[in-house]
Structures are given as structure tokens and as C-alpha cells.
Computed example of a mutant assay.
Amino acid sequence: MAETTAARRRRWPDGYDPEATRTSIMDSALALFQAQGFDGTSIREIVDRADLTKGAFYHHFATKEELLWEIQNSYIEAQLAAITEIMAASEDPRVRLRELIRVSLTSIADFHPHVTIFYQERRHLAGPRFTEVAAKRDEVERAFNGVIRDGVERGFFRSDLDPRITTFGLVGMCAWAYQWYKPDGAFAADEIARQFGAMILEGILVPEAR
């Protein structure tokens, strides 16, 4: 017997809630993609875990790839929004860099499944969706690079360090934390960010700017 959306649709206190349904699909996919990988997860598993129907899925997402894009895009959009706030709050490159490091690491705590999926499953994106996510990822790197260059030009950061290499090292160092950070581990994300910031700034600040 063909299933019907009405028969299996999750019921919400105020009736059917499209936004809550979309969130349930996203939450289910986050858990399954993180545990099983993108290839190892079927749409049937996603909707079954969310107690929804395939009809509900296809009402919100055309394909599993679109859902993956939504997960990746929501993470990187949150990063870009935080970066905009950092740039508006201070013009001091030392402050900005500390805050960029903090946001990079607290984002791993706040969006841990998103971050894991972002780095492990992004190869499954193609075409315009990949191009869009890659462009936004480049924006994040440009923000780091711009702050480092500004710090060098203003005499705060060492001029013997190439800003591009420093950016790659810094972004990579922060990004790799998703591999070992544990939400219930011994160190909170803010403390890890503080120690990363201390290590990095100690290495690139000129003595008189410390």
C-alpha cells in the first residue's frame, strides 16, 4: 500500500508546521550523515528517523544533495555572519584575529555535526552548489588573510611571515580541531580558543605590540 503523507506526517501541537518538519529532516540527516556518511545514508533512513514521509522530504528538498548543501551552507553562513560582527566591533587587527580564532573554534562546538559533514562530505557537492559553498569558504579565508595583512602593514605582526602562508596555517589549525574536539571533553571551546589565540599571536606579534 502506498504511504500517504497524512498517514505518517508528524503531528505538531499547533498542527502541521513546515519549518519544524524541515528542521526535523535536517536534524535527522545531520545525525545520520555524521554516523554513516553521505553515501551510506538513504532518504528512507532520514525520513524514518524523523518519523516523516518521503513526500514530506521532497516537499522541502529536491534531492539528498540539496539537503547536504543546506547543511554545509547553514554552517558557513553562520561563520560569515560572525565575521561581519567581528569586523564591525573593532579595527584593531590583534582583537580581530583573536575573535576570528574564537569564532572558528566555538563554531566547531556549536555546529559540530555540520562541521564534520562539511569537511568529510563536501566532495559530494557539484556544480553551482559546490561553487557557492567554495566561494563562501574563500570569503572566510580572505577575512583571515585581510586581518593578517592589515596587522603586518600597521606594524603589529611580523613582516617576515608571508600572510598567505600564515592564513593557511591558521585556518588549517583551527579547522582540524573538529577531529579531536569533544563537546563533553575536558576543555570548553572558549578555553581552547584562548590557548590557540595565545599561541598564534605570540608567534606573529612583533615584540613591541605584545
Rank of each mutant, 00 (worst) to 15 (best):
G155D: 07
A193E: 00
D190M: 05
R9G: 00
A193V: 09
D17S: 04
D51W: 11
T131F: 11
A62N: 11
A35Q: 15
E141K: 02
A82F: 05
E3A: 07
G146L: 02
H124Y: 09
Q120A: 13
Y75N: 10
P113W: 03
A134F: 11
D184V: 04
R8E: 05
A175H: 11
A31L: 15
F61E: 04
D190N: 14
E19L: 06
K136P: 03
G40F: 09
T167N: 07
L67W: 05
M1F: 01
P128W: 07
G197Q: 00
G197S: 10
Q179K: 15
G172P: 11
V103H: 05
A56F: 02
L201K: 05
G151P: 00
Q179M: 11
A188L: 10
R22Y: 11
A143F: 00
L105F: 03
F118K: 05
R123F: 05
L105I: 15
T5H: 08
V206D: 10
L67C: 07
A6V: 13
T116R: 09
Q36K: 13
I148D: 01
T131K: 13
K182D: 15
L32S: 05
F144I: 08
G40M: 10
P207K: 09
R98K: 12
D14K: 12
F33W: 08
H60E: 12
D39A: 08
A193T: 02
D92V: 01
L30G: 10
